[in-house]
Amino acid sequence: MASKLSENGIYEGSRLILPEHREAYLAQEELQRRRGKPVLDEQEMQLIEEAILESYQDCRSVTLTVFNPFDDEDIRGVVASIDKPNRRIKLVRADEDYSWIRIEEITAALL
């Protein structure tokens, strides 16, 4: 006969997890999945800026990949405004919704 202190006895089988501990554990797991922002070289940044400028001048649609610590986001739209002092652009989507995107957060641009 097994002891009550081992092999899933009384003490082993009566473990509880408090909701606060579970939330803290899940938050810690979420932080560990974060990833760092990729470092772009000068040529890649120049290609991104050229695609943004071409979209602005010709009113062409562009797909931007915006960095997110957990999952990158692809946004498609037309560049409506360029804010040079703050280094951000105003991207208007098909449903007339717009968003301001910082140029430093863009990791790729496709026309």
Results as ranks from 00 to 15, higher is better:
48 I>R: 01
55 S>E: 03
89 I>T: 00
94 A>G: 08
71 D>E: 13
49 E>W: 11
56 Y>W: 11
37 K>G: 11
87 R>S: 07
48 I>Y: 03
72 D>C: 07
46 Q>C: 10
71 D>H: 13
88 R>P: 01
70 F>A: 06
55 S>L: 05
88 R>S: 05
89 I>A: 00
82 I>C: 06
37 K>M: 15
47 L>C: 09
75 I>S: 04
52 I>D: 00
89 I>P: 01
52 I>H: 02
76 R>Y: 05
60 R>H: 08
40 L>R: 05
73 E>T: 13
57 Q>A: 06
30 E>F: 15
47 L>Q: 14
79 V>R: 00
88 R>H: 09
70 F>I: 06
85 P>K: 05
68 N>C: 08
31 L>P: 01
71 D>Q: 13
36 G>H: 13
84 K>T: 11
41 D>C: 09
74 D>W: 04
93 R>W: 03
49 E>K: 09
86 N>W: 08
48 I>D: 00
64 L>Y: 02
53 L>T: 10
42 E>H: 14
41 D>K: 14
95 D>G: 04
79 V>I: 14
68 N>W: 08
94 A>P: 00
36 G>I: 08
35 R>P: 04
55 S>Q: 04
32 Q>M: 14
40 L>F: 12
69 P>C: 07
36 G>F: 12
73 E>W: 11
66 V>A: 02
96 E>L: 12
63 T>W: 01
40 L>H: 12
90 K>G: 07
91 L>I: 04
88 R>G: 01
81 S>R: 13
70 F>K: 10
67 F>V: 05
53 L>W: 11
42 E>N: 14
33 R>V: 10
96 E>W: 09
46 Q>A: 15
56 Y>E: 03
46 Q>G: 08
80 A>H: 12
45 M>L: 14
48 I>A: 02
81 S>A: 09
74 D>L: 08
63 T>I: 07
32 Q>D: 14
78 V>N: 01
87 R>H: 11
56 Y>I: 02
86 N>M: 11
83 D>L: 06
80 A>Y: 12
89 I>Y: 02
80 A>S: 12
85 P>T: 04
57 Q>S: 05
96 E>I: 07
95 D>Y: 10
52 I>E: 00
93 R>F: 03
42 E>W: 14
66 V>N: 04
48 I>W: 03
93 R>V: 05
49 E>D: 13
87 R>D: 06
72 D>E: 12
71 D>R: 14
93 R>Q: 14
93 R>I: 03
54 E>T: 09
91 L>E: 01
67 F>Q: 04
33 R>W: 14
76 R>H: 07
67 F>E: 04
88 R>L: 09
82 I>L: 07
32 Q>S: 14
71 D>Y: 11
51 A>D: 02
61 S>W: 04
77 G>E: 00
60 R>V: 03
54 E>C: 06
81 S>V: 07
77 G>H: 01
53 L>Y: 12
89 I>Q: 01
69 P>G: 09
59 C>L: 06
78 V>I: 15
